[in-house]
Write a protein that binds this DNA or RNA. Structure first.
Lengths: 238, 238
DNA sequence: TAGATTGTTAATCGATTAACAATC
DNA sequence: TAGATTGTTAATCGATTAACAATC
């Protein structure tokens, strides 16, 4: 994408939203606020105080106020926060109305599960295509996204705006294909391959997902809980 | 599971592994060490220093030594760490050889993608069954796991050891079914439903996974990167 | 022994919480 | 105005990094 194309994109609705540098800890909490606010909205609540939200979310009211203030004064003294206003502000920060375009690399089980879910739609991300090397899959369609031949990646990226690639291909090819995508101007990577991608922040933005790591930390706590119980029960037997 | 069954389980190979209380920040890094050590093992490396591992993993050597020391002295002054020894120690901590038994609740796209992956096998977790309410799915088999009727959950849990439930069912039913499982003695939950489950630590161990949150923080950084680029380019045009 | 590298303590840094003045 | 609740500063807490003595 050229600079002038960027400008067009920005004018759409990204312009005017100031995304200051804020600690990653805070950024990672924004999506959770987003979820809880949507729930409040669904419940028809129009206003909420940091104290009440604190109760629901199991975080301190202080942290909520601190977090939200990183981006400006979204609340009002004596009143609290207006749910729909706060929701729209956080949506904007998270680029929900940016209409980001994504492609999925790899149409295996995970790629298909993702494209069929409501995940992207809910967050304003458009899956405009999938890519695979398997001739049996190429041409098929899942969740409204057509599967293209990996060979056609260059052509596709030349004639379409692609903001982000979801990597669900085998980890052995992860680095190679990420480099290929980067050279085609794709700078966002949601990486499920298990091979950690590391780029400089001005080069590309990478979110490495490791589901296995999540499972293993559950394992640790579960084993710990079990040994504690067995300790306790052996004490009782004494 | 009764207390005596716990003891049997513990004697298998969980016994003797001390899992002290360590800050969650450290625990969450263990799986990453596990992955990098496995890679070193595959490369045939027999020893590694904290400095060299630091290089690979992009964390400080100090942190590595600090982390590993929470669980005991796994290294040796003047030498470093023995890769296979360290790997086995971390595997033990993470319960890889415990042979934990898991069931998957919900045989939809995600449940099937998970069961077909090598994720569980690599980490020593056995998927012993899947459950669903869809008559078209009940009786079928995916990735070696048979799909049972949700109605048979009680029977199944009575006659099988179930350490953990992987929740991939619709979020509306998450709380209800988690409570049901808990009453059947299942205390570990790997929760993909999007409905956050909150239990006291001695009641159940829950790992809430929110893939959408991960996508949204990528979104934030991507949008930020874009606005920075457009700022730069508009400056150049001035 | 000399060199290397851990284990561990102390110093620094960052993030969270508490407190309260500002203000709606 | 009085009451409520934010925005914001200051205090606390925890996690990371640096430094170095212990020791292989």
């Amino acid at each position: 994408m050229t600079d002038s194309e960027y400008s067009v994109r920005m004018e759409k609705d990204g312009e005017g939203i100031d995304r200051p540098f804020v600690s990653p800890a805070v950024i990672r909490r924004l999506p959770r606020y987003f979820r809880y606010l949507r729930e409040l909205l669904r419940e028809g609540k129009t206003r909420i105080s940091s104290a009440e939200l604190s109760d629901r979310m199991q975080v301190t009211a202080s942290q909520i106020r601190q977090d939200l203030n990183c981006f400006g004064g979204f609340g009002q003294q004596g009143y609290g926060y207006n749910v729909s206003y706060l929701y729209s502000k956080i949506s904007d920060l998270l680029g929900v109305s940016m209409g980001l375009h994504a492609i999925i690399i790899g149409a295996g089980d995970l790629g298909r599960a993702l494209v069929r879910s409501t995940m992207f739609e809910k967050r304003g991300v458009d899956i405009i295509a999938m890519f695979d090397v398997d001739p049996d899959l190429i041409g098929k369609e899942f969740g409204g996204a057509k599967i293209y031949d990996m060979k056609d990646l260059e052509d596709f990226c030349d004639s379409n705006v692609v903001d982000m690639a979801v990597l669900t291909l085998p980890k052995e090819k992860a680095e190679e294909e990420a480099a290929r995508l980067l050279s085609l101007g794709v700078t966002g990577f949601w990486n499920f391959t298990g091979k950690e991608l590391i780029y400089a922040p001005d080069e590309a933005v990478v979110e490495n997902v490791h589901l296995g790591d999540s499972l293993m930390s559950l394992n640790y706590e579960l084993c710990r809980q079990m040994s504690e119980k067995s300790k306790k029960s052996s004490k009782e037997t004494e």
